[in-house]
Design a protein around this nucleic acid. Sequence first.
RNA 1: GGCGCAUUCGUCUAGGGGUCCAGGACGCCGCCCUCUCACGGCGGUAACACGGGUUCGAAUCCCGUAUGCGCUACCA
Length: 487
Amino acid sequence: MTEVRGPVRVRFAPSPTGFLHVGGARTAIYNDLLRQSAGGAFVLRIEDTDRERSDEAMTHQIQSALQWVGVEWDEGPFLQSERLDRHRARAEELLASGGAYRCFCPPEELDRQRQEAQRRGDAFRYPRTCLRLSEAEVRERLARGEPFAVRCRMPDEPIRFHDLVRGDMEFPPEALDDFVLLRSDGTPTYHLSVVVDDVDMGITHVIRGEDHLSNTPKHIALFRAFGAVVPAFGHLPLILGPDRKRLSKRIGSTAVEEFRAEGFLPQALYNFLALLGWNPGGEREILSRREMIELFSVERLNASAAVFDREKLGWMNAQYLSGLPLAEIRPHLEPFLAEVGLGGGKVDEARLAAALELHRTRARTLRDLAQAVVPYFASQLDYDQALCGKYVDDPKVAEGLGALRERLLALPEWEKGAIEAELRAVAEARGVKAGAIIHPTRMALSGASAGPPLFDLLEVMGQEATARHLERFAACLREEFRTAPTG
RNA sequence: GGCGCAUUCGUCUAGGGGUCCAGGACGCCGCCCUCUCACGGCGGUAACACGGGUUCGAAUCCCGUAUGCGCUACCA
């Protein structure tokens, strides 16, 4: 019944007052999904009419964030601020046709009345004082140069519409206020601008945040006043923080850019956000944009608010990190490699690729992954003395590692099967279990007590670096760790 | 205050009158795999906000209540 077919024209209309918020990104994603699955066009429009709060740099930020996360638009970006004359002209038309009227009431007076009404517990609507002004009086006050706003004349019947997400909606006339279209300084208000733009851009489906649900009757009245086709509306619930309040800065990241900087893959963020309030039907949760486009339908959009679950995002990112072809991950990884000094092809590519392959199932973020691969290229490693304490007290360890080093150095072919055979021989010769050699060796080579299977690690590390790290670690065991202050 | 929207495991959700003593996923716990960690596999923990109806039968329909959120501007 609410199924959407055929070409659509959707839009995403952020205000450039800050970075792209994940809530905004999700709205953009659903518009993207709808546009891609139904065909048509996605219009990007920047609602920068609030000069005070708008920032041109943010306009670029928002675009790059959208691009990064994988939302594609067909038209725009259009700047609403460049269309102000058009908005004003359309308000003039309404004035001429009777769809709007001039209001000379001083705002302070209206404020007073509003507070009064609130104190009584009543809903406040503009009392239409100026609607009853005679033409002569209007002319006279105009001639006197009295300031005026232009108000939309709202209908006296209820406004009904079918929300794509929430179903049938009805707003009684008592709830419909004659809202301002043009301020007394002649600038258009948000409601006017939005509707004029949506009409001019031929928008057929408005998918936006729940905060606009109560504004929709105003918009519908305007569409009708303009004699335009009223688009279909769908109102998305908000994204909540773990405290069940509107997702806020103080709980953690909220901007797409921040997730990018923390090392999340755009594919994962897109997937995660898409599933926060939409259910594709099956039980699979890891879905590519392609698959989601196939599966998308507005009927399966959820009407209730969802808590943003960082843990699950982390899990999803890990899934993409281990599942995506390495080639797809690499470009996103590059900045993080640079952060740890491994960027720009400075290190052996084959070794780097092999190391990444070994660690990708163990990382949650790109940052983790870049960090994990550092030991393979470090000339010298730092060891945590507390973790090495158990090896210091066992003289067999240093001796065993020395022996292992000799044998590995003598290996004609650097291959994990052969490496393993040597290590096991060393252990057996000393009457200890392989683990007694394996664990200190891992520590020696990676500076960590956990990581990939040791023989894989060794193979990737290479003969030269292995020997070097083994030698230094054994030396540390014998000398430094004993004399250095423990802590 | 008024108007509106929402309410299934801690979280994301499936469910649209009987197939539900409620299914999947994240998290958590246990087991398996195993040189450690992770991946993976197997198992477990945990929910229909509350109260009234309607009905032979309600998580599913209706009405209240509670809670949360949104709007209530010559902000967007």
